[in-house]
C-alpha cells in the first residue's frame, strides 16, 4: 500500500497541494487525473521523494518515506518518466541493466541478467539488446525504458510489495503504444504485489485502464474511487470547465465533448 496523508506543498507562494490524502493498493492500477496545474505532477514528485511535503506524510507499506534509504527504496520502487534522452551512445542492454544497479555491487549476477532478459522479452525489446539507444524512435525508446524500470522491480519477494510510478509516460506515444503499454501495466499489476500509480492526461484512457481514479483540481482531491463514479459529467465540469456526455459502449465509460 502506498499512502499519502494530508500532504501539502507550496512553491512561490502558491499552494500546489492542499491536504491531499489518497491510498494506492497493490494489484490495482491507480491513475491521478485532473486539469493542467491541478497538482498531479507535484503529487507524483512528492510520492517519489523528489519534493519534500510541507505538511502530511507519505508511507510505503506503512513505513514513512523518510525512513527509507535511497538504496532500499530503489530496490522496490521504480519510476517511469515522460521520456529519457541520452547524450551518449549506449546499447539497449546497457540501458536496461541500469535498472539492476540498486541490486548488485560490482558485476551483475545471473539473477540480474535474468531479470533484464525477462523484462526485455516482456516488452518485446530483447532483439534490440545490441542496438544503440540513439537509433531508436521515441516509442521504441519508451519501450526500452519500460523494460528498464520493470527490470528494477522484476523479482517478487514473499510478503513484500513493489511500487511502479508512472509520471506521464504516455505523453509522446501514439494511441497504439498507449493501449499496448496500459494493457501490459494491467497485466503486471494483476500479479497482486505491485502498486501502480500513474498520471495520465486522457480521461478516456484513464477510464478504460484504471481500477481506481483520483481526480485532483486546484491542489485538492475532488473525487476518489472507481472510474465510473469519479468521472461524472458534473465532476468533470467542475474540474475542467468543460461538460462531457457520459456514454456507455460495450459496458465501458466514454466521455464525449459536444
Amino acid at each position: 500500500m502506498l499512502t499519502a496523508r494530508g500532504v501539502a506543498y507550496a512553491a512561490g507562494g502558491r499552494r500546489l497541494l492542499d491536504d491531499v490524502s489518497a491510498s494506492f493498493a497493490p494489484g490495482a492500477v491507480s491513475v491521478v487525473v485532473g486539469p493542467n496545474g491541478a497538482g498531479k505532477s507535484t503529487l507524483v514528485r512528492v510520492l517519489c521523494r523528489e519534493l519534500p511535503p510541507a505538511a502530511g506524510e507519505v508511507r510505503y507499506g506503512g513505513r514513512p518515506l523518510g525512513e527509507w534509504s535511497d538504496g532500499e527504496l530503489a530496490r522496490v520502487r521504480a519510476v517511469l518518466s515522460q521520456s529519457v534522452e541520452l547524450a551518449f551512445p549506449l546499447r539497449v542492454w546497457e540501458v536496461v541493466l541500469m535498472g539492476r544497479y540498486p541490486h548488485f555491487a560490482g558485476r551483475p549476477t545471473a539473477r540480474d541478467e535474468a531479470a533484464c532478459e525477462a523484462a526485455m522479452r516482456y516488452f518485446d525489446v530483447w532483439d534490440w539488446a545490441d542496438r544503440s539507444y540513439l537509433t531508436l524512435s521515441g516509442g521504441e525508446r519508451q519501450r526500452v525504458q519500460f523494460a528498464r524500470v520493470m527490470a528494477q522491480i522484476w523479482e517478487r519477494a514473499p510478503g513484500a510489495t513493489r511500487y511502479l510510478v508512472l509520471d506521464e509516460p504516455l505523453t509522446f506515444l501514439d494511441i497504439r503504444y498507449q493501449f499496448e503499454f496500459l494493457h501490459r501495466v494491467r497485466e503486471l499489476a494483476a500479479a497482486g504485489d505491485l502498486v501502480v500509480v500513474g498520471v495520465v492526461h486522457d480521461l478516456n484512457l484513464a477510464a478504460r485502464f484504471a481500477d481506481h481514479l483520483v481526480l485532483l483540481a486546484g491542489g485538492r482531491v475532488l473525487a476518489d474511487g472507481a472510474p465510473a463514479d469519479v468521472l461524472t459529467p458534473d465532476r468533470v465540469e467542475a474540474a475542467f470547465g468543460v461538460r462531457p456526455v457520459a456514454h456507455r459502449l460495450d459496458g465501458r465509460l466514454h466521455l464525449l465533448y459536444a
Binding site: L73, A74, R77, V79, S81, V84, V95, M98, Y101, P102
Partner: peptide
C-alpha cells in the same frame, strides 16, 4: 539517464 532517473536508481 538524467538526475531524477539516477536518484530513482538510488
Amino acid at each position: 539517464l538524467g538526475e531524477e532517473e539516477a536518484r530513482y536508481l538510488g
